[in-house]
Simulated scan of single mutants.
Amino acid sequence: MKITLLKKASWGGKSYKSGSSHDVDDKIAGKLISRGYAEVYTPSEEVEDGPAPSE
């Protein structure tokens, strides 16, 4: 399951920064989410811009 960290967390002997996204085992993801350290990853929606204004 892909998650985004809300707080600094560690698993598997490594530490990870808040705001980073990771693909982790469902069991680890469940623990992090239930404890408030992470949320399910949702990709940011890209906004389609029009052409750049000419100068």
Results as ranks from 00 to 15, higher is better:
S15H: 11
M1V: 06
E55Y: 10
L32I: 06
E39D: 08
A38T: 01
S20P: 04
K14P: 00
K2Y: 07
L5N: 03
K31R: 14
G19P: 07
A38W: 01
P53W: 02
P43I: 04
D23S: 13
E46H: 05
P43D: 11
E48H: 12
I3T: 02
D49W: 10
V24S: 05
G19S: 09
I33V: 13
G30N: 12
T4Q: 10
E39F: 06
K27I: 15
G30C: 09
K2H: 09
S44G: 06
A29I: 07
K17A: 15
P53E: 11
Y16R: 00
L5W: 02
M1T: 08
A29W: 01
A38V: 01
P51A: 11
A9R: 00
L32S: 04
I3H: 01
E55L: 10
E55G: 11
T42L: 08
Y41H: 06
G36K: 07
D49Q: 15
S18A: 14
E48R: 12
R35Q: 13
S54E: 11
G13V: 07
W11Q: 02
D26M: 13
E48I: 13
T4W: 02
S20F: 04
Y37V: 02
D23A: 13
T4K: 12
T4H: 01
E39K: 15
G30M: 07
V24P: 01
V47A: 12
S18G: 08
I3F: 00
Y16Q: 02
D23V: 11
R35C: 08
S18L: 13
D23F: 08
A9S: 07
I3A: 00
K14R: 13
H22L: 10
L6T: 03
E46I: 08
